[in-house]
Design a binder for these strands. Structure first.
Length: 419
RNA sequence: GUGGGUGUAGCUCAGGUGGCUAGAGCAUCAGAUUGUGGCUCUGAGGGCCGUGGGUUCAAGUCCCAUCACCCACCCCA
């Protein structure tokens, strides 16, 4: 019986892993550049971390989590996102008693049970950053602007930043009531899910994409015109700092994200050319989450970006082959005596820091050359009886085709300089 | 959860109205006589035609079911 990977999952094959490593290295370099440290949390958590953290009435928690009871009768969930686990770890390890702020980043797989589609998987990968302990707008702006640098470094253009502020527990109830008033007359015409949203979380009415509902719902007054003075002040500072950095954005008063922990700033990046799942990242401020998960009241902001979608967006311009590996030197051998010599030499130069490979297939010279070319060897070192007797190798530069005979002894250091 | 589309070699695809050992290009492997890659040429391996039923003398081709994948809704990364 032959098997395939489960629905909505995919293998990253040798053809693509080089590209993925490139993406990861750009992320790590950028994070280091900005003073973030990596946090690695488990792939699964107690279900409650997400129920309380993400919100029990969100789509993610209600119908998308991989939740199961383990053999010890504990409720376990494969993480659907990275912020709640990071905050759980922040609280658990008392990171508040480290130098503040706490700046964390993560890279890793997430799991959501959704119908797979272009750019949507059941196991997918995100990188994200969290600034915990800062209430001021500089943190919001750092978290919005830094992924844009990563996108740019990856050659992803055509990114739009959508920005909104959804207020705080002081000003949101007022706006929520306003929305309910505005939409009460058309309530019977709305779709069933909007009717339930009306009761449970009226803000999310703004998020309905159904054309029909949109027809019935006149554009609401923008939420950011109803913020309390503190939220309005914060929002305008965020905008001022974005302008100062030259970050362009569009105000999108309908942007209400699907996780309950957000307050004040919310944002989302969209890209062109990758299909209908065009949100490549998003985030916002979550000042209540740390407390919700058992810590002291602590302000925080974060962002998460989808790596599959980054790779999709890159493919338009970048070919995966550019990131394929390749060894410094491939040893070609002629005859059995040479085959054994080459085997030793490969291990020897490797121990001196030169990447090397050699023929294991017992192939002829021509086939070995062809192979060395196909796997991108920078140099080929040919060894036969003549070379062994003279203590030399025939070293060929595969890009120029130049070949010369060099002493075996200095091979490793010569290759180190030559690359 | 709701629609629509597609399943033939590792990949991209041909295979009118059912009919002989199921094809091509690319990829893989092996050759093109003396110890040299990319170009070219020759050859080889590799497919129970997604799976299970049915109709028929005969099914890759027609019918039904099932599974998988893709796209969109939804949701989001």
């Amino acid at each position: 019986m032959e098997y395939s990977a489960p629905r909505g999952t995919q293998d990253i094959t040798p053809d693509e892993s080089g590209l993925w490593q490139h993406v990861e290295s750009v992320i790590r370099q950028t994070m280091a550049l900005c003073g973030y440290s990596e946090i690695r949390t488990p792939i699964f958590e107690h279900t409650e971390v997400f129920e309380r953290g993400v919100g029990a009435t969100t789509d993610i928690v209600e119908k998308e989590m991989y939740t199961f009871r383990d053999r010890g009768d504990r409720m376990i969930t494969l993480r659907p996102e990275g912020t709640a686990p990071a905050v759980r770890a922040y609280v658990e390890h008392r990171m508040a008693s480290r130098p503040q702020p706490t700046k964390l980043y993560y890279i890793g797989p997430m799991f959501r049970y959704e119908r797979p589609q272009a750019g949507r998987y059941r196991q997918f990968h995100q990188f994200g950053m969290e600034v915990i302990g800062v209430a001021g707008p500089a943190a919001d702006v750092e978290v919005i602007a830094t992924p844009l640098d990563i996108f740019r470094a990856l050659g992803i253009t055509d990114v739009t930043v959508n920005l909104n502020s959804i207020g705080c527990p002081v000003c949101r109830p007022g706006y929520r009531n306003l929305l309910k008033e505005v939409y009460a007359p058309v309530l019977p015409q709305l779709c069933p899910s909007c009717q339930s949203r009306y009761e449970r979380n009226p803000l999310r009415l703004l998020d309905c994409k159904s054309q029909e509902c949109r027809g019935y719902m006149p554009d609401p007054p923008p939420i950011f015109e109803y913020l309390c003075p503190e939220c309005a002040q914060h929002f305008s500072e965020v905008r001022r700092l974005l302008d100062k950095l030259g970050v362009e954005y569009v105000l999108n008063p309908r942007l209400v994200r699907g996780l309950d922990y957000y307050n004040r700033t919310t944002f989302e990046y969209t890209v062109g050319g990758i299909g209908s799942q065009d949100a490549i990242g998003g985030g916002g401020r979550y000042d209540g989450l740390v407390e919700e998960l058992g810590g002291q009241p602590t302000p925080a902001v974060g962002v998460a970006c989808g790596m599959e979608r980054c790779v999709l967006a890159m493919k338009a311009g970048a070919d995966a082959k550019r990131f394929a590996g390749g060894v410094d030197v491939f040893f070609v051998s002629l005859g059995e005596r040479a085959a054994e010599r080459v085997f030793e030499l490969a291990f020897q130069v490797r121990s001196q820091g030169v990447s090397a490979d050699f023929d294991m297939m017992g192939r002829g010279l021509k086939a070995q050359m062809r192979y060395a070319d196909k796997v991108n060897a920078k140099f080929v070192a040919i060894i036969g009886d003549n070379e062994i007797d003279r203590g030399t190798v025939a070293l060929k530069d595969m890009s120029t085709g130049e070949q010369r005979e060099v002493p075996m002894a200095g091979l490793a250091s010569m290759l180190r300089e030559g690359r």
